[in-house]
Design a binder for these strands. Structure first.
Lengths: 88, 88, 88, 88
DNA sequence: CGCTTAATATAGCCAC
DNA sequence: GTGGCTATATTAAGCG
């Protein structure tokens, strides 16, 4: 191999591409996290109780999850009953 | 030091005690996990759809969690309103 | 319907039995997990580094060969990326 | 009550605004997380060891943090010495 | 055996 | 600044 750098061929290039994509996304993620933190800080500056707010946000997330979960159970039920494989 | 083993004094003894306690508990845990697996296997042997069962168990666990979470939010609300620190 | 409750016959009873067995075992499991947590907390209170302890417990559980193999792959990747020896 | 909805005045409106901003950001965050997951999945599809990749990404993140910290200290020192920004 | 979920460990954040 | 707590990342298990 010629002295094209320290990588070991084409796999190295591909790896580097993946690494760049991931680190780019990680940067974006860090930005969002920072924004969220800022909003809570602003709230607190406006005199709101952020602990309560965090709980609410979490509860709403859990609620959405639970809905999805129940829908999944329902679907399984329907399937199991419809095709008669509650006994599989 | 006399030939009491390869430890380096009293801290070594204490560490070993902790390690034993932990590994004992880990063994118990492994036993329970194995038991759960066995129950599902038995169910399947009896002709039941275990995937549905797992979903149900999970949904019920989530339901309990959500209850707890909502209770926590309610408590925070009461506290916030009661002492008047919705604005903290 | 007779006084058998809201289930639909004998399969329902059997299902309920299984559900109870599973949830009972899940409770026991939760108890053990809690105990393990307590031991680590106690260790920390005694001044030990629990992160290191966890690694030791895990290492004693798993195989050494796999670790060696992963280390080799990591070295390879770092070399391919031209970023020498970030890992370990 | 006039047609302001079910809230209890201006604080309610402000709260709702904050809630919307937060949940909007949470959605964006979830999108990014999903994208990252996809990249790793693609890598795995191309035959790479993603576990090793994750370790590399993490190591580089820590390294970057340490760099930033050292840069900050360097700036501080330069300022304290009255020799502005010798270090990049 | 891979690949999708569940369990566990780590890390970041907030309050004290 | 420390310690608990929540969220995230990693590891392991279970199923097809």
């Amino acid at each position: 191999m010629s002295d094209i750098g320290h990588n070991s061929g084409v796999a190295g290039d591909e790896l580097r591409q993946f690494l760049e994509r991931i680190e780019r996304l990680e940067e974006e993620k860090a930005g969002i996290l920072s924004d969220i933190k800022d909003v809570y800080a602003e709230m607190k500056g406006r005199g709101f109780n952020t602990k309560v707010m965090r709980r609410i946000v979490r509860a709403r997330k859990q609620d959405a999850e639970k809905r999805r979960e129940e829908a999944a159970v329902g679907e399984l039920y329907c399937h199991a009953l419809g095709i008669g494989d509650l006994l599989d």
